[in-house]
Design a protein around this nucleic acid. Sequence first.
DNA 1: ATGTTTTTAGTACCTGGTACTAAAAAGCCG
DNA 2: CGGCTTTTTAGTACCAGGTACTAAAAACAT
Lengths: 187, 187
Amino acid sequence: MQKSSRQQLMERYIKSNPFLTDDDLAEILSVSIQTIRLDRAEMNIPEMRSRVKTMASGIYGKIRSMEADELMGELVDLEVGRSGVSVLTITDRMTLKKTRVARGYYIFAQSNSLAVALVDAEVALTGTCKLSYKRPVYSGEKVVARAHISRKSRNRYMVRVNSTVKDELVFSGRFLVFAISEEVWRR
Amino acid sequence: MQKSSRQQLMERYIKSNPFLTDDDLAEILSVSIQTIRLDRAEMNIPEMRSRVKTMASGIYGKIRSMEADELMGELVDLEVGRSGVSVLTITDRMTLKKTRVARGYYIFAQSNSLAVALVDAEVALTGTCKLSYKRPVYSGEKVVARAHISRKSRNRYMVRVNSTVKDELVFSGRFLVFAISEEVWRR
DNA sequence: ATGTTTTTAGTACCTGGTACTAAAAAGCCG
DNA sequence: CGGCTTTTTAGTACCAGGTACTAAAAACAT
């Protein structure tokens, strides 16, 4: 087997299983451990321990921020019962790989969670919505969602949200949100 | 400081940051490294390297499946251009902690991604939608989304989706999906 | 003062490496 | 075929972050 093809193979093995040690790889590719280390050095592939560590730390952050958020996006302004603004920067993992266009539900999630946050109630649930996607949003773009309560009657709130990228409207939605009394949800 | 309270503290430190080495902990708690190791042994807390490893491996599977999916939910039936069915089981991380009610956008994401998958095109984007949430969905429930194309004209598809839990309708949506030609998105 | 618990010190050893030197093997060219 | 280069292997010293163990010192309780 050629050096170059072995290196490609090794890269694929590591990608598919980052937990492989040099020892494992040496056995799999039936070369000496030194060859593996030379190859890794040439290709700037770090050792197993740091591969695992960066994996763990990379994911660690995401988990925490996802749990921390009841909201999708970062709340930059909120006047409960009136209006609010949230910002969401589209990252690669929110996009369709082929086009780098944000999946629609991230845009929706941002506006929906903002709409719910606006409602001054212990628990609020979305009843119906009408959404309109104006143009695709690409990876790296910063979506600013502005919401305000347009009507309110007893426990029903109508919330309008407009999401823009650099003042260009990319999405708008109208949400009918219900404030739920405690007896209903605490079953 | 007492032994027991130090151990509790140590446990919390490790929980909040699993990357701490015995050395780090010894410094933080200002005891010797041997004490830390005794404590870990008593409390059956594994060493940093294996903590990191199990973290990484635990999450490794999840990431891959999330990446593999362009869809939210599992596709159980799909006849492109006609109809499809997807199943999504609501887990705790999809719910509002207070109520254990699924956040609306997960239900939406399932139906929306199913609607897009139905459309026979390289790239499809959602234009507008009307959604209606019929009742809250709780953690553990299995949401079955059934979609079919109700109208089609040139590059526009109207997709209707009904999501049920055990034959009870929990959500319905109508999506206007656009099939996009390659020139538009490959900028 | 004595016994018990807790803490610290120290040593030998392990895994999964890095960094380096040097020799052996394989491939190529005229 | 020799001579040269590339590639591979061998081996050594060293490191981090440990395990496993022995033993002494310190803290405490009665």
